[in-house]
Amino acid sequence: MSAKQIARRQAIPVLYTRGTHYDVGFDMGRTFGSVIKSFLQLSGPLNESYLPLYNTEKGKNVYNETLESVKNSFPQYIRELEGVADGAQVEFHKLFLLHMDEILPQSLKHQKTKNQPTGCSTIILNTDKSRVLAHTEDALTETLNHYYFVVAHIINETPQGKYNVKEERFMSLCYAGHLPGYTMSYNHHGLVFSINTVSAEVLRSGKTPRHFITRALLSAQNSEQAFNIIRDKGVGAGDGCSINMTLLNENPKICYNIEMAPSLGDFKESLIDIKKISIGEHNYHANQYERLKLDQANELMIASSVSRMKTFENYNPPTSKQEVIDMLGDCSGGEHCVFREDNTLEQAVKTIAVGVFDLNEKTFALYSDNPKTHEPHVILPLILKK
């Protein structure tokens, strides 16, 4: 049986690792090498678009320009990714291409990879009684069973990267072969966040791919540092995403949704819009820009986002964690429903996991199946720095 034929598994591997950036990356690669190799073989975008373009002169130039930019800002995360490649015994350039995502084909104005209604849905509930950040992780079907938890403690002898970071301690759900930070994560400073992919029409090479901005976010000690990391002054994002976040140790108890887009022209800073969700409020976000006004790509992902947001709006505003969980398990709405699972291997996109951060209880529950009808696979405590 091939990896693509394996049905949804009730298994979520967890790696606890400590060391330098390279050490942590190597441990990820060595521990999950078979899963990473399997994902590299199955990834349609990588094999059908990114690698063929990488093997052209123009594509190689875009790759090298972007790699050099990331090395200048975040050499420690390049070392971390080199560790993953070495530990898994796979080619580094394939992993870096995954982190560039659509920057390569779109910056070359090449025919984009086939539009798919990929993406995620996030609900934030911020009341005195229930403070919840909950998220569906939706991805191409080949990603199913190709993810794992990384709990890492990174200690450096000298400050690293453009933000001079010496220590990082975090937990993150990772796609196979990817750096931590682009799904659901928290760090020991109390930063909790999830990511919604959004697709701007114009992406920029030589800028910082969103995967590295959200990786850097794991080092943030407070909300102002987080905003600065997302702005990425001096370079700016090469592509876009939406960040749903809060700081457990900050008062007042505010949650945020930040839309981040690629910088325009010679402007060396991400375009961002920060929305506050104060006590007594809630927020939904999917996979389209709601507030930043710019051209968007991937019509199917936008159609899916509109459908899922309409489903949420059909509910009364949630007042409890259970109501949020029920909303994320909603299978109405046809093809573009919230929890996507039709039990066929041919389905292009599936919800591969659901995560629920209880911000009052300081726990994270991960579901490997529909949260409306299943118990969480694991509930982990959020361990904060004293």
Rank of each mutant, 00 (worst) to 15 (best):
D239L: 02
I325W: 08
E201K: 08
A88Q: 14
A261C: 04
S121A: 14
F193A: 02
S278P: 05
K112V: 05
F193E: 11
Q347L: 10
T122V: 14
H285S: 10
M1I: 10
E224C: 11
L382W: 13
N187K: 05
R131E: 11
E346S: 06
E137G: 04
M301V: 01
G238H: 13
R30V: 01
L97V: 10
Q160N: 04
D342Q: 09
S305Y: 09
T17D: 02
A348Q: 04
M1N: 04
V132E: 09
I124C: 03
D358E: 01
I213S: 15
T373Y: 05
L294V: 08
N251Q: 13
I272F: 01
T66R: 10
P371I: 12
T31L: 09
R18I: 06
S263D: 15
E361D: 04
D86I: 04
I155S: 02
H377F: 14
T373W: 11
K162I: 15
Q288E: 07
T363L: 09
P318V: 02
G19R: 00
H153Q: 06
D330Q: 06
S49H: 02
Q106S: 05
N287L: 07
M184P: 01
T118R: 02
T66L: 00
K58M: 15
I379N: 04
F96S: 02
I379E: 07
N251H: 06
Q106V: 10
Q41H: 13
A152Q: 06
N72H: 15
A220P: 03
L384D: 05
V378H: 12
Q322P: 12
N115E: 08
S121I: 03
L42V: 13
E157I: 14
C331L: 14
G33V: 15
N222Q: 06
L247S: 11
G333T: 12
